[in-house]
Amino acid sequence: MSIPATAAFTATLGRELRIATRHKAEWLMPPLFFAIVVTLFALGAKPGDPQLAALAPSVLWVGALLAALLTLDRLFRGDLEDGWLEQVFVGPAPAMGMVLAKLLAHWLLSGLPLLLLAAPLALQLGFPSGAPLGWLLLGLLMGTPLLSVVGGFAAALTVALPRAGLLLPVLVLPLLAPVVIFGSGAARAAQAGLDPGGPIYFLAALLVLSLTLLPWAATAALRNAFD
C-alpha cells in the first residue's frame, strides 16, 4: 500500500495551518521583528539622510532574513519531540510530501507577512514607489520562499540537537549570500533606473534549483535524526 505524495502534502499543509491558528501571537512576531529592525535602522541614521533610501534594499533583505530565522528553529522540533515525524517516516506516505508541505506552510506563515509589510517599510525608508517598489517586492516574492527552503534544510540538519539555536544561523546565512545579492541587486538596479531583469532571473533560477535539491536533502537530514 502506498499513499501519493500529494495526499501527504495536503494533509500536512492542513495540519500546519490549523496548528498555526491555535498560536496566532507566535506568527505575529516575525513581521513585528521585521518592522522593528527596519525602524531601528532608520533611527540609527541621520534624519532625512538620502543614503537611507540607497541602503533600503539591503536593510529590507537582511531584516527579512533575520525575521524568517526566528521561527525556523521550531519548524520540525515539535514534531520530532512528540513522535509525529517518526510515524510519518515509518508510514506508507512519502516523507518528502510532508517536508514540502511544512516548507510551504512556513513560507505562508512567516514569509508572506514579511512581503506584505515590505512595501510600507520600503516607503518609510524613502525607497521610490512605483516600478522600483514593484521589483523589490517581486524579488522578495521569490526570495522569501528561498529563505524557507534553505532555512528548512538547516533546521532539518539540526533538529535532533539540543542547542541548535546558535548553530542554525551560522549554517543558513552563508548559504543565503547569493539570495541577498540578487534580491537587493534587483531592487537597486530598478532604483537606479537600470534593467532589473538579470538578477530577477537569477533569483528564479536559484529558487528552482533549491526547490529541486533541498527538499530531498532536508528529508534525508530528518531521517538522520532518528539515529
Partner: peptide, 24 residues
C-alpha cells in the same frame, strides 16, 4: 512508539484525522 505522536495544539479528532490521511 513510546511517544504518542499527538500534537498538543490539535484536538484528539484532528490528530487522528491527519494520521488517517497520511496512512491512507
Amino acid at each position: 512508539g513510546h511517544r504518542n505522536a499527538l500534537n498538543p495544539d490539535l484536538t484528539l479528532r484532528e490528530n487522528l484525522d491527519c494520521w488517517c490521511a497520511l496512512n491512507g
